[in-house]
């Protein structure tokens, strides 16, 4: 009797051991994780490269080249996200002829995960933006535009979370003040809310309620302004607590490298923008490990 009991017990324990063996095998080889975030901004309908004769950007840019690059990076690291920080529309006849259809279709083909909305994305009116939504297989994110009294109601989310290789990434969008920049008859009853307050609210939700490991802001408020104190990405970065990366747009700012800014918790975070017209692709790689005792200063930033 005792012997039978022992055998039964042993078999059961072995079975359980086997189970834990599976988890053992699956994690021993993977004590580090790697998420790649790619981004563009202010592409302004620049689908073709600039002509070879162009004085500023000869034979640079081009969406079909960007597609190859993104594809190569995704093959290196399948745990890749791709975002755009707005002003997808306006700047070449592709927009004038097709109203943004081609821009959205191509971004879908490149498997963009999300974009925020720039002021020029209202250039065919809010109805013009709505008309292109069936061509977008990616999300439009804006936390500080209230579309409830417009035709875009229900088509824009304030934020979205992505779980990539077990890492939860929260992304929220911010748009620029529209009054004076865009004709009211274009944006209609879209309500612009203070981007700083909204950012602080949504980054907290993403960190505390959604338990995100990484928080990213897609911003079209602009990198900085010399003449006045309009809301901008550098000031935003200094006000936030949980945002890890601000992907910016609007000011067509070319940076030599991503800017490191100290946030409200004295932690260093990144603000990046890659100029305009699809001339560059931004790439930010995040590496994770299991060292939970690391302080904010312990995170190494290489730019």
């Amino acid at each position: 009797m005792k012997r039978r009991k022992f055998i039964k017990q042993g078999a059961a324990s072995t079975a359980l051991l086997g189970l834990s063996g599976i988890s053992l095998n699956s994690c021993l080889g993977e004590t580090k994780k790697h998420i790649t975030v790619l981004h563009t901004n202010d592409v302004h309908s620049h689908i073709d490269p600039f002509p070879k004769s162009h004085s500023e950007f000869p034979n640079l840019g081009g969406l079909a080249r960007r597609a190859t690059l993104v594809d190569t990076i995704r093959r290196e690291n399948p745990n890749t996200l791709l975002f755009d920080a707005g002003d997808i529309f306006q700047g070449t006849p592709y927009f004038n002829f097709y109203g943004g259809e081609l821009e959205f279709k191509l971004m879908s083909k490149l498997k963009y995960d999300a974009a925020t909305i720039g002021n020029h994305d209202f250039d065919n009116g809010i109805e013009g933006l709505l008309a292109q939504m069936p061509n977008a297989e990616f999300d439009l994110l804006s936390a500080n535009y209230d579309f409830s009294n417009t035709v875009m109601d229900g088509h824009v989310k304030p934020y979205k979370t992505y779980t990539v290789d077990g890492i939860k990434v929260g992304v929220y969008g911010l748009g620029i003040g529209l009054a004076g920049l865009v004709d009211k008859k274009m944006y209609k009853e879209t309500v612009y809310l203070d981007p700083y307050e909204i950012a602080i609210d949504f980054e907290r939700r993403l960190k505390e309620d959604e338990n995100c490991h990484l928080v990213i802001c897609l911003s079209h408020i602009g990198y900085d302004y010399k003449i006045n104190d309009r809301p901008n990405d550098l000031a935003l970065a200094a006000k936030t607590r949980y945002t890890d990366l601000i992907i910016g747009g609007h000011t067509h700012t070319f940076l030599d490298k991503p800017t490191i800014v100290k946030n409200r918790m004295d932690r260093e975070i990144l603000v990046n923008q890659v100029g305009c017209f699809g001339l560059n692709l931004g790439r930010i790689d995040f590496y994770f490990d299991s060292n939970t005792s690391r302080t904010a200063e312990g995170v190494s930033i290489m730019v």
Binding site: T31, K32, L69, L281, G282, S300, I301
Partner: peptide, 12 residues
């Protein structure tokens, strides 16, 4: 494995 250890940023 969810503790941020390293960030590398560049432009291509």
């Amino acid at each position: 494995v969810t503790s941020l250890a390293k960030i590398q940023g560049r432009q291509i």
